[in-house]
Design a protein around this nucleic acid. Structure first.
Length: 288
DNA sequence: TGCAGTGTTGCTTC
DNA sequence: CGAAGCAACACTGC
């Protein structure tokens, strides 16, 4: 389930490995994922060079030499894997599990080097779009997205401005809503609020100055740490080598129902509760 | 064994 | 208008 740190890791790898490659062909067995007619998609990408890859929220954007942009969203179970004839996915068990779900493949070439970029998507929730770079600014969905939490320009004051917009919401619902701050999903929202010592159900308007500051700092700290560890592989996230991330080893609350709270001297036991149809994890003692 | 749970996000409904 | 619920899909685990 890729959130900001996972997508950031993937984009970093893609830039290292496929920047400058030309798309020679594209194969799919599930057209529904591609949001424009397949012939139009093919025409827009074949023979074009991949100039750079960027992340916006949880979206991956491939900028092509003809001014087109391929948008890929992995949703819940998507993976992008890069392979050449010799390379095998690092984790063989994972390779066997994932290969049968490869529904789209870009075949790439640069000089004598040939690679394939394979999109594995078990639940087929992922999406692929193609549009002109000049439409980027008013893209129907991208234009509605909120601020990037790791941008240098995203300061405490910006965060507090966002908090003012939804005083009656719980802090958890606000952090998860991509219209305000992007990139945070169910795993990191639990971890951020644990780190900040804040109850996820807490109403935004009841947060005092100190708490707002804590949440802001924890948000940046946890996301940056997760990128450093190449993301969280709870059940199925893998990087473009098929290798797992490292953040799952340092999760403090997510998926730790019934286990002891890891905060020093806290005797709490982590609980899971349903908030708005989704699981939320917290320590009932040290998150106030 | 069958059905709830899994999490992202846009769409529908009220 | 906003909030809640659902659908897209397939596998896991209780």
């Amino acid at each position: 389930m890729p959130e900001l740190p996972e997508v950031e890791t993937i984009v970093g790898d893609l830039n290292k490995k496929i920047r400058g490659y030309q798309i020679i062909s594209f194969w799919t067995d599930w057209k529904k994922t591609i949001k424009i007619p397949l012939t139009e998609f093919q025409k827009g990408i074949l023979g074009k060079r991949i100039e750079k890859i960027k992340r916006r929220a949880k979206n991956i954007l491939f900028f092509l030499s003809n001014g087109k942009v391929i948008l890929v969203h992995l949703k819940m179970t998507g993976h992008l894997l890069i392979k050449n004839q010799k390379s095998k996915i690092k984790n063989q068990f994972f390779a066997e599990r994932v290969n049968q779900y490869i529904h789209h493949i870009w075949f790439l070439k640069k000089g004598h080097s040939q690679l394939s970029l394979e999109f594995s998507d078990l639940r087929k929730f992922g999406k692929i779009e193609l549009f002109d770079k000049k439409e980027l600014a008013d893209h129907r969905e991208l234009s509605k997205l909120g601020l990037e939490p790791l941008e240098k320009s995203f300061g405490l004051e910006d965060f507090k401005k966002i908090l003012k917009k939804k005083p009656n919401w719980s802090i958890r619902d606000l952090l998860l809503d991509q219209r305000f701050i992007v990139g945070i999903g169910n795993i990191y929202v639990s971890e951020i609020l644990f780190d900040a010592g804040i109850d996820p159900r807490k109403k935004v308007s009841s947060l005092i100055e100190k708490e707002k500051r804590k949440i802001y700092i924890s948000m940046i700290k946890i996301l940056a740490k997760a990128i450093e560890l190449r993301g969280t592989s709870d059940s199925d996230y893998r990087d473009t080598f098929g290798a797992p991330g490292g953040f799952q080893k340092v999760l403090k609350v997510y998926g730790r129902t019934g286990e002891k709270c890891l905060r020093k001297n806290c005797k709490g036991v982590i609980i899971r509760e349903k908030l708005k149809q989704r699981s939320s994890f917290r320590c009932p003692i040290c998150q106030k």
